[in-house]
Amino acid sequence: MPRFINVAAAQLGPIQRADSRRDVVERLLAHLHQAHAMGCQLVVFPELALTTFFPRWYLEDPAELDAFYEREMPGAETRVLFETAARLGVGFYLGYAELALEQGAARRYNTSILVGQDGAIIGKYRKVHLPGHAEHEPWRDFQHLEKRYFEPGPGFDVWRAYGGVIGMALCNDRRWSETYRVMGLQGAEMILLGYNTPVHNPPAPEHDDLSMFHNHLVMQAGAYQNGTWVVGVAKGGKEEGCEMIGGTCIIAPSGEIVAACSTKGDELAIARCDLDLCHSYKTTTFNFDRHRRPDAYGLITSRRGAIEPEHLAA
């Protein structure tokens, strides 16, 4: 029996530094309401969806930096998202900057959460592949200080949710084949992936004209090679003078883009995703048990054992 989930990829246009959390949350709520009106069960927001992309500045004042982070989730300004999700019966994925207190120490992560249709948090992911640099580089038109403002998360997990096996990733994770494979080995049937990507790459400007091609290339390859849906959601447009690529799309396990945004502003791309479509790829061309040769790779291939989808367990 097909296992359908109606997914809305909720692209955001630019968020300026002066925009308040309240203003941004109102835009997210508008996406939730529109997605509900179109029969969606899950809305996927971008990376750092509550603020401008603050790693583009070198900030020396700790208080100024800390203002971009969430100390709790939900918090006073974000609780309405969870309440609305529960009322509408529409869950969501949300990327944000997290300031966590762990064993008495402040830890900063680039984080995403998966929230169920009841408004409860199902799982949390902390970004593994941090791009950019850790020290101020004045020659750049804008900075990319993720290595300064975040620490890497522990790894990739998957969760049983929405009738399937769901994984999460963030932005630069999408460029690394290990991201998809580690979750593929755990039975992932849908990977949710928010990003903020500038058009201009200061260390390699020769890549600029290929930024959208590379964006779609890696997500389509990851989907196909692991027999999983991939929902890639951008923050696009000119944000504080920096042009972001957009390119939000929903990719089937075949590697085909089945829905996409056509602007760089606030927009929904919607697809009816059959999780059972993963089965024909996971049991034929990319049947890992039959065809993979981990003995020949010399690598640790998985952080933990696979979660077998319930429809295959029998």
Rank of each mutant, 00 (worst) to 15 (best):
I113E: 14
A169K: 01
K124E: 13
K124D: 03
G164Y: 01
K124Q: 13
A134R: 12
F142V: 05
L130V: 01
E135I: 09
H133S: 07
V158Y: 06
F156I: 02
K147R: 13
L114E: 02
P154R: 13
G153F: 09
V165Y: 11
A161Q: 07
M168G: 13
H144E: 06
Y149Q: 08
A169M: 11
H133Y: 09
A161V: 07
Y149N: 10
M168H: 03
I121Q: 15
V128A: 07
P154L: 13
G132L: 05
I113D: 13
Y162G: 07
G116C: 10
L130I: 02
E135K: 10
A161I: 04
H129N: 08
L130G: 00
G167L: 04
F142K: 05
P138F: 08
V128W: 11
G123N: 05
K127T: 02
H144A: 07
I166T: 11
H133R: 07
V165L: 11
D118L: 09
P152I: 03
L170N: 09
S112Y: 04
E137A: 11
F156V: 03
E137T: 12
G119D: 12
G155I: 12
D157K: 14
I122L: 15
Q117F: 04
R126K: 14
G132Q: 07
E135N: 11
E137S: 10
V165W: 08
V115C: 15
Y125P: 02
L130K: 01
M168K: 01
G163L: 09
Y162M: 09
G153H: 05
G123V: 02
K147S: 00
K124S: 10
A169F: 03
I122T: 08
R126V: 07
E146N: 06
Y149M: 06
G132I: 03
G163P: 11
V115H: 12
A120V: 10
P154E: 13
E151L: 10
L130D: 03
H133I: 07
H136A: 11
V158C: 06
A161T: 09
H136W: 15
L114T: 00
G116H: 04
V115M: 13
Y149A: 07
E146C: 03
D118W: 13
K127R: 06
H133M: 05
K127Y: 00
H129A: 05
L145S: 10
R140T: 00
H144R: 05
D157N: 14
E151F: 05
I122E: 09
I121L: 14
G119E: 14
G153N: 09
I121S: 14
G155R: 10
F156Q: 04
Q143D: 08
P131W: 04
S112I: 04
Q117Y: 03
A161L: 02
I113N: 13
R148I: 03
D157H: 15
G167N: 04
H133L: 04
